[in-house]
């Protein structure tokens, strides 16, 4: 079993009082709580902080933790053999447990007693897992493999992490941030408590061409100045293959040209749209002939793109 230094995790001395421990937990919870934190590793950090606090806030658990002794974080150690024997189990009982499982099992016999004794029902743990999928997968629907380590009470009454693998079907039309609830796919309930649920949080991976907003898609549409000025028919990629888009003469930069029903499917409201956002671009290098044509245009045009400056100032 790997040792975790719960005092170090909370940033307190081993002699810290209950108030200092609570204060340290609160401070760290404000920083790392996944519902309010923007830290990258918030979920993992808060899990560790919660685990440490769960043990150190309870005088019985804290005394048991202190009894383990002090090791380096991550160092292998064995709980005193009499802990297993006290529960009528052999020396190997702790072999496939981690520290959190150990204290969940030993905390006043809470889980163990319930697993065997039939006290009040305890619901299983809910899990939230990020499902990163591509836009193409979101458009077509996909399957996502979920691997969880779910705490379950074994026949010996001790809690252990049990690997669970299953495939979740994500129907077509998933959008960024949407959540899919998979009932009963979390931790096992105890004493008739309901099994926990799994929540998949959809994250769309960045696409080299398209940007999604809800079920609508956006793509940059670079146009040469003469295409924007004179109009053109251009090929635009979509998730289902290229289409031809007619660009009206006098199209301006930043204009959004809508391609109806070329976005992501929305299972409840049809299909989103694709918007081509016009960008008027110049060649990286101009030939002498191109320069000459532009000079001629400059000489003959009365167009003043900044006329509104003087109109506003006046």
């Amino acid at each position: 079993m790997k040792y975790k230094d719960y005092y170090k995790i909370l940033g307190v001395e081993r002699t810290a009082g209950a108030d200092a421990i609570k204060k340290a937990y609160r401070r760290l919870a404000h920083k790392f709580h996944p519902d309010i934190s923007k830290e990258k590793n918030a979920k993992e950090a808060f899990q560790e902080i919660g685990e440490a606090y769960e043990t150190l806030k309870d005088p019985e658990k804290r005394a048991a933790y202190d009894e383990l002794g002090s090791f380096r974080p991550g160092q292998d150690f064995r709980p005193p053999p009499e802990w297993g024997e006290a529960h009528g189990e052999g020396r190997g009982v702790f072999d496939d447990m981690d520290l959190a499982d150990l204290f969940a099992s030993l905390s006043g016999g809470r889980h163990r007693g319930h697993a065997h004794g039939g006290a009040f029902p305890i619901p299983g743990q809910d899990f939230e897992v990020a499902a990163q999928i591509t836009l193409e997968q979101a458009a077509r629907g996909t399957e996502f493999e979920v691997n969880l380590a779910v705490p379950e009470a074994g026949a010996d009454g001790f809690m252990r992490r049990v690997p669970r693998t299953f495939t979740a079907r994500i129907a077509k039309g998933a959008a960024e941030g949407q959540r899919l609830r998979l009932p009963g796919k979390g931790g096992k309930g105890l004493n008739g408590g309901r099994d926990g649920d799994l929540y998949l949080i959809i994250h769309l991976l960045p696409h080299p061409l398209f940007r999604a907003s809800g079920h609508d898609l956006y793509i940059d549409l670079p146009l040469a100045p003469w295409e924007a000025a004179l109009g053109a028919t251009v090929e635009v990629p979509t998730l289902h293959g290229p289409v031809h888009l007619k660009v009206q003469p006098g199209t301006r930069s930043g204009q959004k040209l809508r391609l109806a029903r070329r976005g992501l499917p929305n299972p409840r409201e049809g299909i989103g749209d694709l918007y081509a956002v016009v960008q008027i671009v110049l060649p990286a290098e101009l030939s002498e002939q191109e320069r000459e044509l532009l000079r001629q245009m400059k000489a003959q045009s009365t167009f003043d793109p900044r006329s509104h400056f003087t109109e506003t100032a006046a």
């Binding site: 399957e143 690997p163 669970r164 693998t165 299953f166 495939t167 979740a168 079907r169 129907a171 949407q178 959540r179 899919l180 609830r181 998979l182 009932p183 796919k185 929540y199 998949l200 409840r268």
Partner: peptide
């Protein structure tokens, strides 16, 4: 290892 395919409920404005 138990591998199964499971369906879910979208938590959106329509449910």
């Amino acid at each position: 290892m138990n591998i199964e395919i499971t369906e879910g409920l979208w938590l959106d404005e329509f449910g």
